[in-house]
Amino acid sequence: MITEQGLTDLFEQFKALGFIIAILLPFIEAFLPVLPIALFAVVNANSYGIFLGFLYTYMGATLGAYFVFLLVRKYGQNRFLRHLNKHPHTTKLIQRIDEKGALPLFILLCFPFTPSSVVNVVAGLSTISKGSYMLAVVLGKMVMLFLLSYVGSDVYSFVKYPEKSIIVLIILLILWVLGKLYENRLHKDK
């Protein structure tokens, strides 16, 4: 199991190469959604500071998301992904993206609890342009990862000053509720 301390120890052991690991783990998360992007963002910000930690996580997550999108775009209609394309929820989301463009993607990617790998695959199956998709990923991941990096840059202050923790928890709860409301709206439409 991946823990914050385990990742911090790994970064310490490979200090000279730590930034590569800090970028590579969020990149891999785009392919393996079971990996905890929130944990990577927190550890990177705690290890490298809010600016560099955010930048490393952001680079890896954005490049990974775009790479998944390009792979699905190129090979998405193969047998391997045809069954996903026929799933009713997937079809609705693809139609929404085809109609509304990057806005639904941007909104979904802002929420830390959205499985971004699913969003990347669905976007790859849609007809959205590569540029529009990249814009949604760049901006949506920026919002989400900056919030997580802010928390991770000084985890201990959230223990020392509980009101700070409460504010972040309220923001995360609001984002989660908004994400669920938006998801329900997507499922209701059409």
Rank of each mutant, 00 (worst) to 15 (best):
I2R: 08
E4S: 15
G6E: 08
D9S: 08
D9A: 09
Q13P: 00
A16G: 06
F19Q: 02
I20G: 08
I21A: 14
I21H: 03
I21L: 15
I21Y: 14
L24M: 13
P33L: 13
P33R: 06
P33M: 09
I37M: 15
A38F: 09
N46Y: 08
Y48T: 09
Y48P: 07
G49N: 05
G49T: 12
G53Q: 01
Y56E: 03
M59E: 05
A61S: 15
A61P: 03
T62S: 12
L63A: 13
F67N: 02
V68P: 04
Q77I: 00
Q77R: 06
N78I: 00
R79C: 06
H83G: 04
K86W: 01
T91S: 11
T91M: 10
L93E: 02
L93N: 04
Q95L: 06
R96A: 15
D98K: 12
D98L: 10
K100G: 05
G101D: 05
I107A: 11
L108S: 15
S117M: 12
S117N: 12
V122A: 07
A123Q: 08
S126I: 13
K130R: 14
S132F: 11
M134C: 09
V137N: 05
V138I: 15
V138F: 14
Y150P: 01
Y150Q: 06
V151N: 01
S153T: 10
V155W: 03
V155F: 05
Y156P: 00
V159S: 12
Y161P: 07
E163C: 03
E163P: 01
K164A: 01
I166C: 05
V168W: 08
V168N: 08
I171Y: 03
I174K: 04
I174W: 06
W176C: 09
W176G: 05
V177L: 06
G179A: 13
L181M: 11
L181R: 12
R185V: 02
H187F: 11
H187G: 05
H187W: 09
